[in-house]
Design a protein around this nucleic acid. Structure first.
Length: 625
DNA sequence: GCGATCAGAT
DNA sequence: CACATCTGATCGC
């Protein structure tokens, strides 16, 4: 199929082709989209579902997958038959070869190519997340030859090339952006990927010399998960001029990703002293990073080295110090926590929104609509400023939403003298997504005739802003101090606050037993910041940042002591975890017999024919219609 | 027994 | 809670 000319695809016809002569009903006659499908996964005015395969059903026949991470593709099985899955080429290969999704249901689209699907123009642009990750641009017709434009970022990390992307530019001022809000909080300020890679390379080179053969004394370990953060490996291999050792699992994935012939990787451990290890090999990251020096020693002895230097590239860290990388050391082991992220950080999210100037924002992360009841929502909205809780996903959604909308006040734009005012509208829970227009979690940004912000109100604004991100017990005076000390830089202020908290937590946690931690934390947090904690605040409220840690600790202890070995005492209301009935399609087309969730593990346990030069897999042409 | 889904661990 | 993944238990037929 020639490239260049825009393709025209109609999902229904593809679907028919895929499932045979018994054609489905016209789109308009499909059943309504069930209300339990989160709005953050449905493109308004369409039947398009994005990254929502657990919600697949008769109501939709066009599905989109932004990237190949399990939390986005769950629901896809070898028996998939509910509709066409649109994704990037790399993702399509992974779907077919790893998950064994029937190839006839997978359609890969090229980046930057406008495709006509079910009456809508759809374009893929790179998401700079993991290999194969894309953002979807939907141009949905409404009436009078007008369109609504939607950007679905999937998981993404902003980069310069993204802002230069012409297709994305055409979506400036779009109706809504479905945004990856994973790190939508100023406390997450991590450096650019380049800086992080620079750091890793510099550490490796600091130890210099012993490259190549088995004589190497220093073993370097890089923790990654199955797919993602390959750029670190590629860059390290390239810039350190040596191969990176991976096991056969990782190598198979890398082949599918197109690195098979790069010569950057080897399965022969003796060829390299830089080895890739599994995500949890070097330690656990929760609730704070605890290195596993025992395992490191095992690996060191096993592989015949004298010293081990590990890298854990993670975006999830309480380490908020900028330009500083945490290093854990013991004997001949050291682990570098490198704040490497494949999600956009707070500043980048701001920048992206500023760039796109959307009319509304729909958070796609932590938007657990099922568990958001209207009462809770409304009360949170009402007491919003005081209810910020870093650890609550429900609140995060609101907070981030709110955050963005107020952010828009400043960001949206420059030239325009008119103020843009944001309103967060939260509907009653019964709101159905059948007409997938915005409700629940989306924020409408509307024009208003109010006067612009007056300068002298700036301080107050900043204060409120800051209040959103700090625990409720921080006093107004303290916030003022933080603001002043940071030169009115909100992010700096939040950052320095959490820096102190984190430092303190670390001190305490290394010098006391677990059961003492929570008590110490409460006391010392108050002390360290000279906070006059209101007596009527309960402790959970008081210890905001670490409340979850605290809960975890106490809960764990409690469980151990109490007679409740099997089950974790959940306080979540039963009905909030209602079972969602996925519409089971009567058409059990092509379903052979061996139907079972194909996992990556099962993929790897099979012996795949490996081509002589390790490049045979995944080299086919894109399965165009 | 089997597949789909969830809870928990890693 | 959680950057993602996998195992085993449980649910439902």
């Amino acid at each position: 199929m020639a490239s260049g000319t825009p393709k025209t695809l109609v999902s229904t016809s593809l679907f028919r082709a895929a499932i045979g002569p018994s054609s489905p009903e016209p789109l308009s006659l499909l059943p309504p989209i069930p209300s339990e499908v989160p709005c953050s996964n449905v493109i308004p005015r369409t039947r398009f579902l994005v990254d929502a395969f657990l919600h697949a059903g008769d109501h939709s026949i066009s599905y989109f997958l932004s990237h190949f991470h399990s939390d986005h593709y769950t629901g896809l099985t070898p028996n998939w038959s509910k509709g066409i899955i649109f994704c990037s080429y790399i993702t399509s290969r992974l779907l077919v070869e790893v998950l064994k999704v029937p190839e006839s249901f997978v359609v890969s689209l090229s980046l930057g190519e406008v495709v006509f699907i079910d009456g809508c123009d759809v374009t893929l642009v790179d998401a700079n997340h993991c290999p194969g990750s894309v953002q979807f641009l939907f141009k949905v017709p409404v009436h009078d030859s007008k369109f609504e434009r939607y950007v679905y970022t999937g998981d993404f990390r902003l980069c310069d090339s993204m802002k230069a992307e012409p297709f994305l530019k055409e979506f400036v001022g779009c109706e809504a952006i479905f945004l990856d809000t994973t790190y939508c909080n100023p406390k997450f300020v991590f450096p650019s990927q380049e800086d992080s890679i620079d750091y890793i390379v510099s550490v490796i080179e600091k130890f210099g010399g012993d490259r190549g053969a088995s004589k190497g004394k220093v073993l370097f370990l890089v923790a990654t998960y199955v797919i993602g953060k390959e750029r670190i490996l590629v860059e390290v291999a390239r810039r350190c001029s040596r191969k990176v050792h991976v096991d056969s699992r990782k190598m198979l994935i890398l082949r599918i990703l197109g690195y098979g012939m790069s010569g950057l990787f080897t399965e022969d451990a003796s060829e390299s002293s830089i080895h890739v290890v599994g995500w949890n090999t070097l330690g656990n990251t929760w609730p704070y990073f605890r290195p596993d020096f025992i395992k490191m020693r095992e690996i060191m002895l096993e592989r015949g080295y004298d010293k081990v230097v590990g890298f854990v590239p993670t975006g999830w860290t309480y380490e908020v110090k900028r330009n500083k990388f945490m290093v854990k050391t013991k004997e001949s082991f050291e682990i570098h926590l490198v704040p490497y992220s494949e999600h956009s950080n707070y500043c980048e999210l701001q920048e992206f929104v500023k760039f796109l100037k959307p009319r509304s924002i729909v958070p796609t992360v932590s938007a657990d609509v099922d568990s958001l009841d209207s009462k809770h929502l409304q009360s949170m909205q009402k007491h919003f400023a005081g209810l910020v809780d870093e650890t609550s996903s429900k609140r995060d959604v609101l907070m981030n939403s709110r955050r963005f909308s107020s952010e828009l006040d400043e960001m949206i734009e420059a030239g325009s003298p008119q103020e843009i005012r944001a309103t967060t509208s939260i509907d009653a829970s019964g709101n159905s997504c059948t007409t997938p227009v915005f409700d629940d979690l989306s924020i409408r940004v509307e024009k208003s005739s109010q006067s612009p912000l007056v300068n002298r109100e700036a301080k107050e604004e900043a204060l409120q802003e800051l209040g959103v991100y700090l625990p409720a017990w921080v006093s107004r005076d303290q916030m003022l101090e933080l603001i002043n000390a940071s030169g009115n830089d909100i992010i700096e202020a939040v950052s320095s606050f959490y820096e102190r908290e984190t430092d303190f937590f670390r001190q305490v946690s290394t010098s006391t037993s677990l059961s003492d931690v929570s008590a110490s934390l409460i006391t010392s947090s108050a002390v360290s910041l000279s906070v006059s904690t209101p007596a009527n605040n309960n402790s959970a409220r008081t210890m905001n940042l670490f409340s979850s840690i605290q809960n975890k600790v106490t809960k764990t202890n409690h469980v151990k002591k109490s007679s409740n070995p099997g089950k974790k005492p959940k306080t979540v209301s039963v009905n909030s975890k209602k079972k969602r009935k996925i519409g089971s399609t009567p058409e059990t087309l092509n379903s052979g017999s061996g139907s079972r969730q194909s996992t990556i593990t099962s993929f790897f346990t099979k012996k795949l024919p490996v081509s002589p030069h390790g490049c045979g897999v995944g080299n086919r042409d894109s399965p165009k219609h």
